[in-house]
Write a protein that binds this DNA or RNA. Structure first.
Length: 569
RNA sequence: GGCAGCGUAGCUCAGUGGUAGAGCAGGGGAAUCAUAAUCCCUUGGUCGGGGGUUCAAAUCCCUCCGCUGCUACCA
């Protein structure tokens, strides 16, 4: 049994995530985790909210809450929505947990001890009005290059030039508009990433053939352009405090930069899991044990932090923590060609999606159209056509037609008469091939291809049923009709097992038309027996239940209404 | 500006040197078990433009155009 450690990029705390966030890390991680469990592997799936940083402070301010309360509430909301989408994490932690504080400080101490950190004095913008330091992006002013008067301190959105806040003419706080700001000296810890270039180069190149092209090329680009040392502390109050024994007391009152502590929370959340479940030191074995395969799921914006930043932290600490083996990176899901946007409320968010339709509709559509090789685009029209055709017509109707026929003509019991003939053998051969392909695609995390194969398997069921035509044979040759129905019901059962990683709730419903799911449903096993056995396992006489409609079709009027409500164009 | 990814049928996308593919949509037919759901056949593309290498290019090279993203203090 292989042990598989899976992490999803941590969703940021400031509000409900949209479908682009979901399909870019949390959902594929869950589908893969379910597949791995269904293959019998020992899986630990970890996620958490990323709670530190300026945006969290500001969101709390806007909500009129203190930041700890705000984060606790938002965490609960994100956890509930994750459950609503059947994201089966072993643990959904919080980067503000005591476990993460302890680990982050321990990593920093190790880096300090090993000489990979140094204190540098930097110039920071301080706002007297807000009585706080401002990140570059929260200082606005007139661009010295193009004269745009709302340029941000990190970059001018108008001429795209990279700026320093001190470049701005008439700088002011983006929060209050106050011009009562000044530049102050501030000491910060820098992680000497530049020293790690040769090791990173070797490590990244060793994964070149294994990692997706997208991931390798982004990682490679950062190395090619020359790694800068990176500031890993900030002048904020909300975050993991820098311990006094680092930096000779020059960093009193400062916290670590969220990008330093957020990846460490992968480990922190694993400890949260262990603490919450009496697992003792098992969390450590997942991260320092030898036989673990570690896979990260993340959007392309996160690639640099997972191929450079976090690996440098782990290499520099030199305490045997596990580096990632496989990185599954995703492009963006767009909404009618433009970006999903949390700040502009553009697109569909997890809470709104679940208000419209059950999770499995979204899970199937999103994974079938995952932005794997390029950005993908969501439209209501496309969503409706995929749901209606693939889920309602091809899968749902298949289960419906055969179980209802069995109920009407065979008293709702698996008919035991007759023996499989040429038609059945041809189907078995086809499915042996297709199921092997499906398994390969899941193992390779090629989700679009996996779902296309899954769909082709459902189609093969319909093709078989048309050829076997029990509704015709029932009039003249009951045994022949019985064979077709028995095979049809075996197909229903097998479809439930094959589909579970993608549409877990529906898969269980489908399974229950035939018989209850064994073993409490922690995982519905992926079929590994030859199809000849797999498709011939239902007992003659065993009662089944005609299925209800599994997937309701989406009507044109609903598409029109949702487009109007969510702003498609 | 620099860098990266992408550009293939009406739509969404496979395809990295060997006769252009799938699903959906469109057209024709079969069947009547089923949510009018299914199945079979089929129309449709000078692979963004141009140039080059090669016996052979969607695929390799050059160049131009377009879209998207990144550019290190948003995360």
């Amino acid at each position: 049994m292989t042990r598989v450690l899976i992490t999803s990029a941590l969703p940021y705390i400031n509000g409900v995530k949209h479908l682009g966030n979901l399909v870019g890390s949390m959902l594929p991680a869950d589908v893969y985790a379910r597949f791995a469990r269904s293959m019998g592997h020992d899986v630990l799936a970890i996620c958490a909210t990323d709670e530190h940083g300026t945006p969290a402070e500001l969101a709390a301010l806007e909500a009129g809450q203190d930041v700890a309360t705000y984060c606790a509430e938002q965490h609960a909301i994100q956890k509930r929505l994750g459950d609503g989408f059947h994201l089966g994490w072993d643990y959904f932690g919080r980067s503000s947990s005591p476990q993460n504080r302890e680990l982050t400080q321990a990593f920093a101490r190790a880096l300090w001890k090993n000489g990979h950190l140094e204190v540098r004095t930097t110039k920071q913008v301080y706002s007297n009005a807000e009585k706080r330091f401002l990140p570059d992006r929260y200082v606005i002013g007139t661009c010295p290059h193009c004269g745009y008067d709302r340029a941000r301190g990190d970059q001018c959105e108008n001429c795209t030039r990279v700026l320093d806040p001190t470049d701005l003419v008439n700088p002011r706080s983006a929060l209050s508009g106050s011009t009562d700001i000044e530049i102050r000296d501030s000491a910060h810890l820098f992680l000497k990433q530049s020293q790690f270039v040769p090791r990173l180069r070797q490590w990244i190149d060793s994964h070149r053939s294994e990692w997706p092209h997208l991931v390798y090329s982004i990682a490679n680009k950062w190395l090619e352009e020359g790694l800068h040392d990176r500031g890993i502390t900030r002048d904020l109050s909300w975050g993991v405090p820098v311990p006094d024994d680092i930096g000779d007391g020059k960093l009193k009152g400062k916290v670590f930069y969220v990008w330093f502590d957020a990846p460490i929370e992968y480990i922190g959340a694993t400890k949260e899991w262990a603490d919450a479940n009496n697992k003792g030191e098992q969390w450590r074995d997942w991260w320092q044990g030898k036989d673990v395969r570690y896979i990260e799921f993340l959007g392309k914006d996160n690639v640099p932090f997972h191929t450079v930043g976090f690996p440098v932290t782990i290499m520099g600490a030199d305490e045997g923590w596990k580096l990632v083996d496989q990185i599954k990176g995703f492009n963006w899901l767009n909404y009618y060609g433009g970006k999903f946007s949390t700040s502009q409320k553009r697109g569909i968010f997890m809470d709104a999606a679940l208000d419209l339709l059950p999770a499995d509709y979204w899970r199937y559509y999103l994974m079938a159209n995952a932005p794997e090789s390029a950005d993908a685009s969501f439209t209501w029209e496309h969503f409706a056509s995929v749901v209606n055709k693939d889920l309602a017509d091809v899968l749902g109707n298949f289960v419906n037609r055969i179980t209802k026929f069995c109920a009407a003509r065979f008293e709702g019991r698996v008919p035991g008469e007759g023996a499989y003939g040429d038609e059945e053998k041809a189907l078995i051969a086809e499915l042996d091939r297709r199921v092997a392909e499906l398994r390969n695609f899941f193992e390779a995390m090629e989700f679009r291809k996996a779902l296309a194969e899954l769909r082709a398997i459902w189609v093969a069921g319909n093709e078989y049923l048309t050829r076997a035509a029990p509704w015709t044979h029932i009039r003249t040759d009951r045994a022949r009709a019985a064979v077709a129905v028995r095979m049809g019901l075996n197909l229903v059962h097998t479809f439930a097992h094959l589909s579970w990683p993608v549409i877990p709730a529906t898969a269980v419903k489908i399974h229950e038309t035939i018989q209850p799911v064994a073993g409490g449903g922690r995982a519905v096993p992926f079929p590994t027996d030859p199809m000849a056995k797999e498709l011939d396992q239902l007992e003659g006489g065993q009662p089944i239940r005609a299925s209800d409609v599994l997937f309701a079709k989406i009507a044109d009027e609903q598409v029109a209404e949702w487009k109007a409500r969510f702003g498609g164009d």
